[in-house]
Simulated assay, not measured.
Amino acid sequence: MKHWLVKTEPETYGWADLVSKKEDIWDGVRNYQARNFLKDMAEGDLVMVYHSGKHREVVGLAKVSEESFPDPADEEGKGWVAVRLAAENELKRPVTLQEIKGQEELSEMLLLKQSRLSVMPLTANEFDFILQLAEK
């Protein structure tokens, strides 16, 4: 099983939207590297949902419920893909970007190295460490 982080603007589509639908298509990704990460997602993989914008923080956990398929929003047929995510649970408390930046154990995260990516892998250690921070 792999671990992932997806970023979203909560004003456009946030954690609460995914929770209210229980399961939804994660589409609209228009970066080639992020698209390739979507293609690497497998059913059952765990995904952290990160709110970008004003409140930069990891807020919830989802699970990949359907592997990549053609993005229905790809009107030009350029090969973009989407996945289906199912909401699992909200973190006990959000883990902010500032907290993440302050942790030596997380210093190699792609979130810090390539901050513009909207989909990125996490190591199992990074995933577990963020969960531990959420429990504090």
Rank of each mutant, 00 (worst) to 15 (best):
I100S: 13
E88R: 01
K92L: 07
E90N: 05
I100Y: 14
G102V: 14
Q98K: 10
V83T: 10
K101I: 03
E99L: 13
R84L: 00
T96I: 03
Q98F: 11
G77A: 04
E90A: 13
K101V: 04
A82I: 13
V81Y: 07
L106Y: 01
Q98L: 14
G102F: 15
E105P: 07
E99Q: 14
K78W: 15
A86Y: 00
K101R: 07
V83Q: 01
P94E: 12
R93H: 14
T96S: 11
T96G: 06
L106I: 04
W80H: 08
V95W: 07
A82Y: 11
E90T: 00
A82P: 03
L106E: 05
E90P: 13
E105H: 09
G102R: 06
G102C: 09
K101P: 07
K78P: 14
L97S: 11
E88L: 13
L91Q: 09
A87H: 02
E88P: 10
G102Y: 11
W80D: 07
R93E: 14
T96V: 11
K92R: 08
E104H: 06
Q103A: 09
V81N: 00
S107M: 04
A82G: 05
T96L: 10
V83K: 01
A82S: 08
R93Q: 03
V83L: 01
Q98Y: 11
V83N: 09
P94W: 05
T96C: 13
V95A: 02
E99H: 07
S107I: 05
Q103H: 02
A87E: 00
L91N: 10
T96N: 09
G102S: 15
T96D: 14
E88N: 08
A87P: 00
K78D: 11
E105D: 09
E104L: 10
T96H: 10
L85F: 03
A82T: 08
K78F: 02
P94D: 03
G79W: 15
N89H: 06
K92S: 12
S107G: 13
L97H: 09
W80C: 04
R84D: 12
T96A: 09
A86G: 10
E88C: 07
K92M: 12
V81E: 10
V95N: 08
E88G: 01
